[in-house]
Design a protein around this nucleic acid. Structure first.
Length: 312
DNA sequence: TAAGCGTGGTC
DNA sequence: TGACCAAGCTT
């Protein structure tokens, strides 16, 4: 391995060694903007509590707010504490998940509720490492719950924040496909020292990406930091580098899984094989999709070729 | 590291 | 109209 030679006359990229990144010039305007423009979302109310925050974070993984809202309300009314969900069959979580998509999240949220009940006395932990150990919680969600529910100081790096940083600080239209070490380092460097301010900054920078600095139609005229945005000041250069990989869906196993599970969600008695066979004409793919659902624990096969959502 | 995993809205 | 996108996680 040859050590790369550092070009002698280049300015260090923001967040790189030797480049002091101080976010104070961003914190104040973004937090002030958040104070007047933040959406009134139920999981931001004090009564939502840590469990409400956690439920919302699971549901919001790759799913828009507008579709989460009604399911969230029903969910919290039915299972106001982790122990309430833990006492249910996992299939009930999958059913209540409805059409939010990625139903493995429902199974993992149920698993997390069981773990919280067993290991944490029924209280959502505030410690990042303990959160990370729960099923369905990765780096982002652990930081989000610790920050939003408990006011802890964590870099909360979701797709919105990554885009805001890419533009405002790094000066490019889009962040890399996958989160890089440089992005994590930058996010940590920009984190306000004070715990309360850091938590506020996390929510505010995220909201800015969700409402103003969006992927397709950035609204710089409404942006509190437009005057200091590196990307805008550079003339909004187009995206360079590898194309952002899109998601395919039509004709995939994913689509077939969705159709199969929709039948099982609606049914309240075991479903015969023939009913499932109707959702997809191609038998090989259909069988593969069903096997996958069973392997994932989303579907429970019964003797006699019948199926249902999992009871255990 | 990259692929797999749902669903529906938007332009 | 179809490609893109939406508060990611797991393997």
């Amino acid at each position: 391995m040859t050590a790369p030679t550092k070009p002698p006359h280049t300015v260090p990229a923001p967040g790189s060694p030797g480049s002091p990144v101080d976010g104070t010039h961003l914190h104040t305007p973004v937090i002030a903007w958040f104070d007047t423009h933040a959406r009134d979302l139920p999981w931001r109310h004090p009564e939502a509590g840590p469990w409400g925050v956690m439920v919302s974070e699971f549901m919001l993984q790759q799913t828009p707010v507008s579709r989460v809202l009604p399911v969230y309300e029903q969910w919290m009314a039915r299972w106001p504490r982790p122990a309430d969900l833990a006492a249910e069959a996992p299939g009930e979580a999958v059913r209540a998940w409805g059409r939010l998509g990625y139903p493995r999240r429902a199974l993992r949220l149920h698993g997390a509720a069981v773990a919280i009940t067993d290991r944490h006395g029924g209280d959502v932990p505030s410690d990042h490492a303990q959160l990370l150990a729960l099923p369905g919680i990765g780096e982002y969600t652990a930081a989000a719950v610790a920050s939003f529910a408990y006011g802890r100081r964590h870099a909360v790096l979701d797709t919105n924040v990554r885009r805001v940083f890419a533009r405002a600080v790094t000066g490019v239209r889009y962040p890399p496909n996958a989160t890089t070490a440089a992005e994590r380092k930058l996010a940590r460097a920009l984190l306000p020292e004070e715990e309360r301010t850091a938590a506020r900054w996390a929510a505010a920078s995220m909201e800015l990406g969700a409402l103003v600095c969006t992927a397709k139609s950035e609204a710089c005229h409404r942006c509190p930091i437009a005057g200091q945005c590196a990307w805008r000041l550079a003339g909004k250069p187009e995206h360079e580098g590898p194309p952002r990989r899109g998601q395919t869906y039509a004709g995939t196993d994913r689509q077939v899984r969705g159709k199969l599970l929709a039948v099982l969600r609606e049914a309240h008695t075991p479903v015969p094989q023939a009913a499932l066979d109707r959702v997809w004409h191609e038998p090989v793919q259909r069988a593969r999709a069903l096997d996958g659902l069973v392997a994932d624990g989303l579907v429970e096969p019964l003797p006699g070729g019948r199926y249902r959502l999992p009871l255990t």
